[in-house]
Computed example of a mutant assay.
Amino acid sequence: MQLGKKLIAIAACAFMAGGVLATASPAAAAATAGKSEASYYYYYGAIAVARDGSIGRSWNYRTAASARKRALRSCGRSSCKVLTTFVNGCGAVAYNADTNMYWGGRGSTPARAKRNAIANAGGGRWVAYQCTDRYR
């Protein structure tokens, strides 16, 4: 075989191998790594706030329930409530002094989560935010 034909054959094999890898499903990739699809691709977080402004956060949990539980625990007050839960993204909490209330929001970036929380609050300022390791 001529050198040119060998290079074309090698390039074709490399292209085909790359195509196969690129079309593998997330479930197949997760199974190959020995992890479930949910735990491999989804990182959950939550933010909880108490009436006195105490804040609890969590990030990179395998389930939304475990993220909420950790945020409540880290808030440390009996009046704590989870105001936002997010997955592979960011969450934020805003405070509106006019209504004396806290509101949660979420977004794909910290800035979007903060804007969403402020919009949900009807104005005010953000007081806390948190992102999972996988966001955007």
Rank of each mutant, 00 (worst) to 15 (best):
M1V: 09
Q2R: 11
L3N: 11
G4V: 12
K5M: 12
K5P: 06
K5F: 04
I8R: 04
A9N: 08
A11S: 09
A12E: 02
F15E: 00
A17T: 14
T23P: 02
T23L: 03
A24N: 11
S25V: 06
A27E: 07
A27C: 01
A29Q: 06
A29W: 14
A29T: 10
A31V: 10
G34F: 03
K35L: 11
A38Q: 04
S39P: 07
Y41C: 02
Y44N: 05
G45T: 07
A48E: 02
A50S: 12
R51E: 09
I55K: 01
G56D: 08
R57D: 11
S58M: 10
S58D: 06
Y61F: 15
A65R: 01
L72D: 03
G76Q: 02
R77S: 15
S78Y: 13
S78I: 12
S79G: 15
S79R: 08
C80P: 12
G89K: 02
G91T: 07
A92E: 06
A92H: 09
V93Q: 00
V93P: 05
A94G: 12
Y95R: 01
Y95K: 08
D98Y: 03
N100F: 06
W103Q: 06
G104K: 01
G105D: 03
S108C: 05
S108F: 12
P110T: 10
A111W: 09
R112Q: 11
A113D: 07
K114E: 07
K114D: 09
N116K: 03
N116W: 03
I118T: 11
A119N: 13
N120V: 13
A121T: 11
G122F: 15
G123N: 05
R125S: 14
R125N: 14
W126Q: 03
Y129T: 07
Q130Y: 10
T132M: 00
T132K: 00
R134V: 08
R136V: 12
